[in-house]
Write a protein that binds this DNA or RNA. Structure first.
Lengths: 203, 203
DNA sequence: GTCTATATATTGATAGAC
DNA sequence: GTCTATCAATATATAGAC
């Protein structure tokens, strides 16, 4: 966040987008006005338009960053390791995805809530579906190899597992040190083994 | 949906709310205009205001119905049966909750997306948190009794399980006969046992 | 880079006729 | 119960000075 010598608040495109997304997540994109963004940034509306071309441009900028971070998860060495089984790949994807969701909370939360009302939004949602589809292929492979239970539809199962992981963007607190590790372990633990206590026979 | 003798479209409060919520779910509450509701209803804006007092009144009416249906789940005989263990109770809650989400898809989807921007919305969200809290108490009891794994925080686990179930409101298709049973079984199956294939030792 | 002032469009809501 | 016409408020965006 740039700051002039006099200590006066000053901004650039990135700081505007960041501030706008904190409001988008809190109140929703449509319910947030440019004026509210200006107030939180400590400037007037007109100053906002000096840095960004408009409200939708802010939206696209932020959710694109979120999508880039999510797709980077698929290229993570822990995921692409040749020795990794599909179930291990899924676990690493979930771990990395939760980390991205915590790290880019505002942007991911807004991305997940998008409804595709404009053509720009539809294009972004299309890209998001491609991410889900990539994960679904890994789940399918896990089922084929007998690592995952095969009695469930792989696409439904994938959507539910990702839906579980994504849901944390709706209740996690931005600064809250709610131990990211405990959350990651819970997501992975439930995805792999569910809530039931391990059976005695295997202990 | 009332209909006059001449076959001309005519409405009452309930039909307006239902039509409005189909749009609220598709496009989001804030992004939906009263005029769009009027167009889908086949009337003009003014006619809408003859049946409901305003946009927020429509919102409250619909999400209240959704909340009532969710709380009714907790009173379901299959849930309150004295012989039911906490884990069985949780399973029945999930089964009934998914049924409610499919049955009242539009209303539940909008409820789950609410951000609490007005005092009315905050009151509704407070009621929703009470539902989550009731489920969390059952999960806690399951952990105490050793039916559920005790290595996870019960509140985090509850939010993730409910988040998984709730997520289907974002991808299910209203009329789509995507076999409600397959979805219910997937939610319950993952919640209990996760995705991993059953171990050989127990077969 | 930010300001004041304003143009322009949209939208929730109402008045009064039929 | 629905219509046409219109008001009032709000919101995105721009013009031009400092």
């Amino acid at each position: 966040m740039p700051r002039s010598v006099a200590g006066r608040r000053t901004h650039d495109a990135e700081s505007i987008v960041r501030i706008a997304f904190s409001l988008f997540r809190e109140r929703g994109y449509d319910a947030t006005t440019i004026d509210q963004v200006a107030v939180r940034a400590g400037v007037t509306k007109a100053a906002i338009y000096h840095h960004v071309s408009g409200k939708e441009a802010i939206l696209v900028n932020g959710v694109t960053r979120a999508l880039d971070a999510l797709f980077a998860v698929l290229e993570d060495p822990r995921v692409t390791a040749p020795a990794a089984t599909p179930m291990d790949q899924l676990e690493q994807i979930l771990r990395a995805a939760v980390e991205v969701e915590v790290e880019h909370l505002d942007e991911v939360a807004v991305l997940l809530r998008m409804r595709g009302n404009t053509s720009v939004e539809s294009a972004i949602m299309q890209r998001r579906r491609e991410f889900d589809e990539a994960v679904a292929r890994i789940v399918e492979e896990a089922m084929r190899r007998g690592e995952a239970r095969a009695d469930l539809d792989p696409h439904i199962a994938t959507r539910l597992i990702l839906g579980m992981a994504n849901s944390l963007t709706e209740w996690i607190r931005p600064a809250g040190e709610m131990s990211r590790e405990r959350i990651v372990d819970a997501v992975v633990g439930i995805a792999r083994s569910g809530l039931s206590a391990p059976t005695e026979s295997t202990s």
